[in-house]
């Protein structure tokens, strides 16, 4: 017969076995050079940041272009790995990817477990997509209302703790907006640019919906993340990022992908001019 002791023993075995597997630390930059390729974790949650082109079925978007430039800057080839909000941190920590360009903005909690490239590629926050003619106009209107978002989104905490919303997390943004359409929540909260592009591109499908709260929730820097303690990689990537800003490449790419050119882009370009 199975006893509680048996269960505990086996659980512990699994625990110890997997814990030891977690411990890995290596110099990312050396590894990238050795392998001759940069493995970037990118998110494909929809245009403009990352999506699969409906015709060619190739990965496209701002994230992909940026990853390509970073690899070029390091003088190596690019390999991309698709990540989702619930798995991206694990993939980075395991070493499956060297860095994350995954719509993952800077938060204090994340900065405790990961390192990041100080020069961000954009600055934005969440906006709320909801039905037209509703009663939700500000973030505080979300008290007691249900909100669809991605599992692992950094909006979770402020929505629950500051605004008293009932949060429903989905495996990725596509499921979340489909759930909104299916009446499973009052609004969906995601990064502004993806929702705006979706409304623009599929106006007919989304004619009953609009951005109901456009004031950025938790506006923060959209940064590139690397593993904890990877100072070398961080510094090398920061140099490339500064160059990309200074040369105007970032603004060009942002325009190409129809991102709104916010003051952040202009300021960062001017600060890094001539690099």
């Amino acid at each position: 017969m199975l006893t509680a002791r048996h269960i505990a023993a086996a659980a512990l075995g699994l625990f110890v076995g997997t814990l030891s597997a977690n411990a890995q630390a290596d110099a990312t930059l050396t590894k990238i050079k050795e392998r001759g390729s940069l493995v970037a974790g990118v998110i494909l949650s929809g245009a403009p940041f990352g999506y699969i082109d409906a015709k060619t079925q190739e990965q496209k978007g701002f994230n992909i272009d940026l990853a390509t430039e970073l690899a070029r800057g390091l003088g190596v080839k690019l390999e991309t790995v698709t990540v989702t909000p619930p798995n991206r941190v694990q993939f980075l920590q395991q070493g499956k990817v060297d860095l994350l360009i995954a719509n993952m903005s800077w938060t204090e909690e994340r900065a405790e477990i990961l390192n990041f490239v100080p020069t961000a590629f954009e600055r934005s926050g969440g906006v709320a997509l909801g039905r037209k003619g509703g009663t939700i106009h500000t973030w505080s209107d979300l008290k007691g209302k249900s909100v669809c978002l991605s599992q692992g989104a950094n909006f979770t905490k402020p929505l629950i703790e500051e605004h008293g919303a009932l949060v429903k997390g989905f495996p990725s943004q596509p499921e979340s907006v489909l759930a909104l359409k299916g009446g499973q929540c009052d609004v969906a909260v995601h990064t502004g640019a993806t929702l705006k592009t979706m409304l623009l591109d599929r106006a007919e499908e989304w004619k009953d919906y609009e951005i109901v709260v456009s004031e950025d929730l938790l506006p923060s820097l959209n940064v590139i993340w690397v593993r904890k303690g990877e100072k070398d990689a961080e510094a090398a990537l920061d140099g490339i990022m500064r160059k990309l800003h200074g040369s105007g490449w970032i603004i060009e790419a942002a325009e190409r992908h129809r991102l709104t050119i916010t003051p952040y882009f202009l300021e960062t370009r001017d600060a890094n001019k001539g690099r």
Partner: peptide, 25 residues
């Protein structure tokens, strides 16, 4: 698919995200 392996259900979500049409989904 829920851990990001590119199998059929995951591919379907990719396709649905790319095309963005209710009937196609």
């Amino acid at each position: 698919s829920l851990v990001g392996v590119g199998e059929l259900l995951h591919a379907a979500t990719d396709a649905s995200t790319a095309v963005r049409r209710t009937d196609f989904t």
